[in-house]
Design a protein around this nucleic acid. Structure first.
Lengths: 82, 82
DNA sequence: CAAAATTATTCCTGAACAGGAAAATTTAAA
DNA sequence: TTTAAATTTTCCTGTTCAGGAATAATTTTG
C-alpha cells in the first residue's frame, strides 16, 4: 500500500483535464481543431478533457503543448528552503 | 546551472523521465520498490524513466506522485500563436 | 577483476487504447 | 422553441499497453 491515496492521483488528472479545456477555449479552438493540430483523434481530446486515466502520456503531452500549456514537475510539499 | 529552479520544466518525456529517476534515487528506492509502492510493474517504471511515450497517463501520475513529485500545468507565454 | 545488485529488454497473453464515423447528448444561438 | 454548433458516446477493428518471468546488459560493490 502506497503512502499516497488514490484520490490524489485522480484529482491530478481532473485538474489537468480542466486546465486543458480552459486553455483550449481561451485559444478559441474546438476539440476537433485541437485534435487536428495535435495530430490525435477528436475522441482523444474529449477523453483527455474528461480525465480518462488510460490515455497515453505521449499523446497527452502533444495536446497539452499544442493548446499552449506547459508542464512542470517539482517535489511535493517541499520545505520553503528550496 | 545552479540550483535555481524549484520546478523544472519539460517539453517532452525526456525531462519527466529524468526527474522521476532523480527523485527516485533521492528517495533511496529501486525501480522494483517504487513499482511496488505505486502499484505498477517493474517494467513500467523502467519504461517511464526511459521516456517511452505509450505509457498510460494515470499510471504515470501514480508513479510520479508516489516518488514524491507533483505535476503542474500552466500557460506558456501565449504570444502570437493566434 | 569478480560477484552482486540494479536496470533494460524479450516473449507471451489478456486487456485496453486509438482512430473514424455516426448517433446521441449537451450547449449556444437565432 | 427551433436550429445549428459543439461535445460526448457508441461500434468496430487494428494496434499497443501492462504484467510476470527469464534473460541480457549495465552499474555498483567488495
Amino acid at each position: 500500500m502506497s503512502v499516497l491515496s488514490q484520490s490524489e492521483e485522480f484529482s491530478g488528472l481532473a485538474r489537468l483535464a480542466r486546465q486543458v479545456r480552459r486553455q483550449r477555449r481561451l485559444s478559441q479552438l474546438t476539440q476537433s481543431e485541437l485534435a487536428g493540430l495535435a495530430g490525435v483523434g477528436l475522441r482523444f481530446v474529449s477523453d483527455l478533457e474528461n480525465g480518462r486515466p488510460g490515455l497515453e502520456i505521449g499523446r497527452v503531452l502533444r495536446v497539452v503543448e499544442t493548446v499552449g500549456l506547459e508542464l512542470s514537475v517539482r517535489p511535493r510539499d517541499w520545505p520553503s528552503q528550496w
